[in-house]
């Protein structure tokens, strides 16, 4: 579980842009991809600070 949490940022870096690529409009899709990656990275910070220490 812990490993999966740590790995999640790599999976998000691959998955979010591929998901955003489905958007019909290229500009909007790229914005979604970049915003999605940035938001996930911030969530990752929270996971590392709060959740991971509790998992030991």
């Amino acid at each position: 579980m812990l490993k999966l949490l740590l790995l999640s940022v790599c999976l998000a870096l691959v998955g979010i842009p591929l998901w955003a690529a489905r958007d019909a409009h290229p500009g909007r899709g790229l914005k979604r991809a970049l915003v999605g990656v940035v938001m996930f990275n911030l969530l990752y910070v929270l996971l590392l600070r709060v959740v991971v220490p509790r998992l030991g």
Partner: peptide, 24 residues
């Protein structure tokens, strides 16, 4: 930090975005 990490590896996200679009 989170800023440097995002900027250093950001090109991968952009590349994968274009890959997804081109593959479609």
């Amino acid at each position: 930090g989170i800023v440097g990490f995002t900027f250093v590896l950001g090109y991968l996200a952009v590349a994968l975005f274009f890959l997804g679009r081109t593959l479609r």
